[in-house]
């Protein structure tokens, strides 16, 4: 009984961590650009493919047990490459819509998401098939009387660390201050000698790298990855960010935990719940937005007249 509860708890925290990492990217980018980067989920989902590719290309590993070093290296490469692809997505497509109505940027990024998925499907070897993804940690950890599976603990622990670092970066470092300045008012920031284009590049890197980590965790948690997984991950990450209040990092994390929570509860308590988990998750989204139109921690918008 106890172990079952523990299992559900861990499952909730793992899902919450994955969603939070993706949601943080949405929130960061929305805070900065006021546009929804709808392809964020698809950009993030490039990471597992890069990781698989580098495992194969550099270490010649195609499956089975593997050492810690190749895994770490592959993850690092994947995160770095995905971050750079994020910058590329901005430079090539998203930046061209800075002054357009929000809806155009939205449609453009949806199309960009399709481009990314189709590129993976078409050009990754057998890209349309699901790919087995290795666990990043195996075995169990003994912590006092508890015996916990290593991978979930690692996922949650890493996420907590990364989130703490991101908070520190945004609140305590000069680059964080600059990001917030550009988010507040790009024109004034420029007058103060800040180059917005560099800030945009850095933020896209940060958001995409965090999303990449979330997607890597997602793939190893599920044990499998497919070219179109980014759609759902992106939608859930986006929902988490919106429930929490776009632009608020804490809100994004709370939103992620809320969605992961309802998914876990439905899965644990309702027979056949697995197939209904998305229904409940998105009903929660609708309900939340009807009750709190600007999200949990979003600032209510007072229009200046």
């Amino acid at each position: 009984m106890e172990s079952l509860i523990l299992q559900h708890l861990l499952n909730w925290l793992v899902l919450g961590s994955i969603y939070a990492l993706v949601a943080l990217g949405f929130s960061l980018l929305f805070g900065l650009l006021n546009v929804i980067h709808f392809s964020h989920g698809d950009v993030s989902m490039i990471a597992p493919f890069v990781a698989l590719g580098s495992l194969q290309a550099i270490f010649g590993i195609t499956g089975g047990a593997m050492g810690v070093l190749p895994i770490l290296a592959a993850l690092a490469i994947a995160i770095l490459v995905t971050g750079l692809i994020g910058i590329g997505a901005d430079k090539l497509v998203i930046s061209r819509f800075r002054r357009s109505p929000a809806m155009m940027a939205l449609v453009a990024t949806v199309a960009l998401g399709t481009v990314i998925r189709e590129l993976i499907r078409g050009f990754y070897p057998q890209g349309s098939n699901p790919k087995a993804f290795p666990a990043i940690a195996q075995g169990f950890l003994e912590i006092g009387p508890l015996r916990l599976p290593a991978q979930p603990v690692l996922i949650v622990g890493t996420t907590v660390l990364v989130v703490a670092l991101m908070y520190g970066l945004m609140q305590k470092t000069p680059i964080g201050t600059r990001i917030r300045a550009v988010a507040e008012d790009a024109a004034t920031a420029r007058l103060m000698g800040i180059t917005p284009s560099r800030i945009f590049a850095f933020t896209f890197f940060l958001a995409s790298a965090a999303g990449a980590l979330g997607a890597l965790f997602f793939a190893s948690h599920a044990g499998v990855v497919r070219f179109d997984f980014g759609v759902q991950l992106g939608l859930i990450g986006f929902s988490a960010a919106v429930i929490g209040g776009l632009g608020s990092m804490t809100g994004a994390i709370l939103g992620a935990l809320a969605i992961a929570g309802i998914e876990s509860i439905v899965q644990a308590n309702i027979a056949d719940g697995a197939s209904y988990r998305l229904v409940f998750a998105f009903l929660l989204v609708i309900l939340m937005l009807c009750l709190r139109p600007s999200g949990l921690l979003g600032k209510p918008v007072f229009e200046k007249v």
């Binding site: 209904y276 009807c290 139109p293």
Partner: peptide, 29 residues
Amino acid sequence: GIPSMRTRDSYLALVTIAFGIVIHQMLNN
């Protein structure tokens, strides 16, 4: 349309996305 009384822009967009997914998942299940 009722949520559009209180939500706007990206938030309203998400309500409609969520509605679409809920309907699709219900049809599916």
